[in-house]
Design a binder for these strands. Structure first.
Length: 573
RNA sequence: CGGGGUGUAGCUCAGUCUGGUAGAGCGCUACCUUCGGGAGGUAGAAGUCGAAGGUUCGAAUCCUUUCUCCCCGACCA
């Protein structure tokens, strides 16, 4: 490609609200232009990169035996009613009507359509297993699109769906896809980690997310320093602590005016925050629930949702708290007015984190303004909790759930997800095949997603410097850039550049020739910003000395080298 | 969904409080000088000031309505 014929549209300034590196750099490099919240045009430069990612994903999916196809982006309501997801998917589902007022949605995913396809096509176990996939735009009406293409509303996704006669074969394909994903992200040159993920209310057998490690990631992941354990923090188990210690103190009310947080109370009393307990008020199916975690811990919403009656819980508002506990937030606790073992607070279910259930001689809110009670103990000063469960987020330093090592916390960008669905969709939609005994059986299903467009942003988060993007070679728009210095002054510069350009392209190395006639500084700035891995500079000076200048994007200095040396470097990678 | 902010030239933003008829930098066009790290000069083109309504002799500026985009927030009591 000659840059004079390409639409390279770099800019120096970007909107102040582009906050993370990948968003800023994609805008500055002219890869993206926004039209509305979460809706972007991919420029020719952006698309070159996106296509690189897409092709690697396609190659590895094909290699893993999956079959590419394409399904409609506009999908009829009837199919979504079969699984109940027309309602359950919520506000992220974009619903539209045609001229006859018939209802459709723009696909956020394609389980319904692929299952509809499969139940029509697949009649015998002999046709199984099979794995269908597509690479296609999806639309999810995100509450808050942000970070450019990282969390856009319209995005490019590879979605695959596999069908099996039994769980064992689903398990085999799950492993197959897991391995294919690892190959894809390795080939793309990304630092990633596969982590156990929440399988949600769907109740599938297993689920793993592939997370690209980056401080700007929206997900938190926990991993052990002593084993290969890694999980999304939503899922990571906090191990049950050792048995509760014996009560040593007696309860005493302490005045804590203005101290509404555990940290405030601990500081006021001169004790460690790990001796305080935090009370969170939520409303579940069966009414008011007081969830207790240690003062320095946080409630894990996903874990809490899994408890009976809390699937659709919400936080209580201040009025509800006052009505039930007779006290405003800040001084809430599990102790009723009488402070005795038999004294339950009417209408309140107490759910204690396992860590809290093992505490003794601790501090809780008094359910009276400006007061806490210190030195309290379970079963003596108030009843044992109605439910004891793991409801807290793990923190760095917790023991690893597999018993080996301690946990650390890192941030990640979810770029892939593999999921064993089981029979959720095949049952809901009646997708059966005849087995070897001539009996109808619901197919076992798996689904496997990759955020193709998100990978582009994630790669930039991991690979950039002050000058711009540093593409991993497999996704670079071009492998080599040739820059000419003052070509107008010396026809030999043009001749040498053209010759090298032809030779590289002819040998299959994607090369861009900067023939725009810019001054060197502007030219170098552009080539660095768009992240081309190898740069060759051809100048009158260099030709006189019989050398080209070579610099890899990650190098700090350029080198003057002979033509053959440059060719070897550029080819060798 | 709640709270806050924003909208002026292709881009980034001043100007709005205190009403008087449109500005800067970058980019773009032409020419001159430059030419190894985003050059300098000269001359230009370019905006129904988000939209609608109102107040006023006069509105980017004040008032009302509405839309857009952005940020913060479930909350840790």
């Amino acid at each position: 490609m000659r840059l004079s014929r390409f639409h390279l549209a770099t800019v120096k300034e970007v909107p102040a609200d582009a906050e993370i590196a990948s968003h800023r750099l994609m805008l500055r490099a002219g890869m993206l232009r926004k039209h509305a919240a979460g809706l972007y045009t991919w420029s020719p430069l952006g698309l070159r990169v996106l296509n690189k990612v897409e092709n690697i994903v396609r190659e590895e999916m094909d290699r893993a035996g999956a079959l590419e196809m394409t399904m409609p982006t506009i999908q009829p309501r009837e199919l979504w009613d079969e699984t109940g997801r027309w309602q359950k998917f919520g506000g992220q589902l974009l619903k539209i009507r045609d001229r006859k007022e018939a209802e459709y949605c723009y696909a956020p995913t394609a389980e319904e359509v692929v299952t509809d396809f499969a139940r029509g096509e697949l009649k015998s176990y002999k046709q199984l297993p099979v794995n269908f996939y597509q690479i296609q735009l999806k639309f999810r009406d995100e509450i808050r699109p942000r970070f450019g293409i990282m969390r856009a509303r319209e995005f490019l996704m590879k979605d695959a769906y596999s069908f099996h006669i039994d769980e064992a074969d689903l398990e085999r394909e799950y492993e197959n896809m897991y391995a294919a994903y690892a190959r894809i992200f390795t080939r793309l040159g990304l630092a990633f980690r596969a982590v156990r993920a929440d399988s949600g209310a769907i109740g599938g057998s297993r689920s793993h997310e592939f997370q690209v490690l980056a401080d700007s990631g929206e997900d938190a992941i926990a991993f052990s320093d002593g084993s290969d354990y890694a999980a999304n923090i939503e899922l990571a188990e906090a191990l049950a602590p050792v048995a509760r210690g014996a009560a040593a103190e007696t309860p005493r009310e302490v005045a804590t005016p203005g101290s509404t947080t555990c940290a405030d109370v601990a500081a006021l009393l001169g004790i460690g925050i790990e001796r305080t307990v935090k009370s969170v008020c939520v409303i579940g199916e069966n009414g008011f629930v007081l969830a207790l975690v240690r003062g320095d811990h946080e409630v894990n919403e996903v874990k809490l949702q899994k408890l009976a009656g809390l699937a659709d819980y919400r936080l209580a508002n201040e009025q509800e708290i006052v009505d039930i506990l007779g006290c405003r937030p800040g001084y809430i606790g599990p102790i009723g007015p009488g402070a005795s073992a038999g004294n339950k607070i009417p209408g309140v279910t107490v759910v204690a984190d396992r860590t809290v259930a093992a505490m003794h001689d601790f501090v809780v809110g008094a359910n009276r303004p400006d007061a806490h009670i210190a030195g309290v103990n379970w079963g003596r000063d108030f009843p044992e909790a109605d439910v004891v469960a793991d409801i807290r987020k793990v923190v760095a330093g917790d023991a690893s759930p597999d018993g080996h090592g301690t946990l650390r916390i890192a941030r990640g960008i979810e770029v892939g997800h593999v999921f064993a669905l089981g029979q959720k969709y095949s049952e809901a939609m009646g997708a059966t095949v005849l087995d070897a005994d001539g009996k109808n059986r619901f197919m076992q299903m798996g689904c496997y997603g990759i955020g193709v467009s998100r990978i582009v942003a994630a790669a930039i988060e991991q690979n950039h410097d002050v000058a711009g993007i540093i593409w991993p070679e497999p996704m670079a728009p071009w492998r080599v850039a040739i820059c000419m210095i003052n070509p107008k002054n010396d026809a030999n510069v043009i001749a040498a550049a053209e010759a090298l350009y032809s030779e590289l392209n002819d040998s299959g190395i994607e090369t861009v020739l900067d023939d725009r006639g810019l001054r060197p500084g502007a030219m170098f700035a552009d080539i660095e910003l768009i992240g081309v891995p190898h740069r060759v500079v051809i100048s009158e000076r260099g030709l006189a000395a019989g050398t080209f200048e070579y610099r890899a994007r990650r190098d700090s200095e350029a080198r003057q080298l002979g033509r053959e040396e440059v060719l070897n470097l550029v080819r060798g990678g």
